[in-house]
Simulated assay, not measured.
Amino acid sequence: MPSQNHFPLPAGTPIDIHCHRYRAGGGLQILSLDTHELLHSRNQNPIECIPDDCYFSLGIHPWFIDRQDMETACKTLDALQHHPQLLAFGECGLDKCIATPMVRQIQLFSRQLELAERIGKPVIIHCVRAHAELLQLKKSISPSQAWILHGFSGKPALAAQLIEHGCYLSFGKALLQSDARVQQTLVSVPIERLFLETDAADASIETIHAAAATIRSLDPADLCRQIHRNFLSVFLDD
């Protein structure tokens, strides 16, 4: 994995583990890229545009499976697996709300999980109404690398089930809404299994951190330090 000294990471730095656009001064960010973006970009290679103080994740999102040649996409993942700023694979995963057959989704997701295991990087996961299939895969693979479900907004019971099977949960813009269920779920998650993100929201990671701290009745600085520890443990554990 990348060294913890890749660039400075003060303990109070807000960490955004999943975003779709870089924000200058927005703390440490993991910019999410899809192989589709790399293969079809009309401008400069998106990876060449990533600032030096930013990491990225790379994957084949289930939404984009049918928009690209899968062998070329997988070769792209292979070619970039040792990039110094590549911190995770994903987002990738399973989605029952799209037309792509689940069998095909599982096939491509499994290939990325195998690569993540081989290289030793965590996986940022998109999962929509396919948690049973996801957990079945986890049982069959028994991965050594962390699985992080991004944009989580499910019920506490589902969160507990995922955590029981070793998953991490990342919360985002849903925390800014008056959604008692999401707030209840956030409170129920063990803090050492928690991450925060902006995803595609306009809100800053500082705003989401503040909302999470309020919901959990924590000092924002204490929450920030704990997520910093989670980040070092999952992403930069040499």
Rank of each mutant, 00 (worst) to 15 (best):
H82I: 06
I125F: 07
P156F: 11
S153Q: 10
F152D: 08
G120F: 05
I106F: 13
M102K: 13
I124R: 00
S153F: 12
L169A: 03
D95G: 10
P220M: 09
L87K: 00
Q145G: 07
R129Q: 05
E206A: 01
C127R: 04
T35G: 01
P101R: 11
L158Q: 07
R216H: 05
A200M: 12
V128E: 01
Q81V: 03
R104N: 04
I30W: 06
Q184W: 09
C127F: 06
A211W: 01
K155I: 13
E114L: 01
E71N: 10
L194I: 06
L94W: 01
N43A: 14
M1K: 04
D179E: 05
Q105S: 06
L113W: 10
H61E: 12
D237K: 14
N45W: 14
L175F: 08
D238M: 05
G120H: 04
I98A: 06
F171Q: 03
S140R: 15
Q161P: 03
P2H: 14
V187Q: 15
R104L: 03
W63S: 08
D16F: 02
Y168W: 06
M1Y: 10
H18G: 04
C127A: 12
Q145A: 08
I191R: 15
A157Y: 09
T72R: 02
A157C: 07
F171N: 03
Q105A: 05
H20S: 09
C127D: 01
L236K: 08
E48K: 06
H18A: 10
L135W: 03
A146P: 08
S188K: 12
G154F: 11
H36P: 02
I124W: 06
L134E: 00
W63M: 12
E37G: 07
A200L: 13
K121Y: 11
G25Y: 12
L137S: 07
S110V: 00
A200K: 10
W63E: 09
R111T: 08
R104M: 02
L169T: 04
A211R: 00
A11D: 15
W63G: 07
L196W: 08
G25H: 11
R42M: 13
C54S: 11
E133F: 05
L33H: 10
G90F: 15
D237H: 15
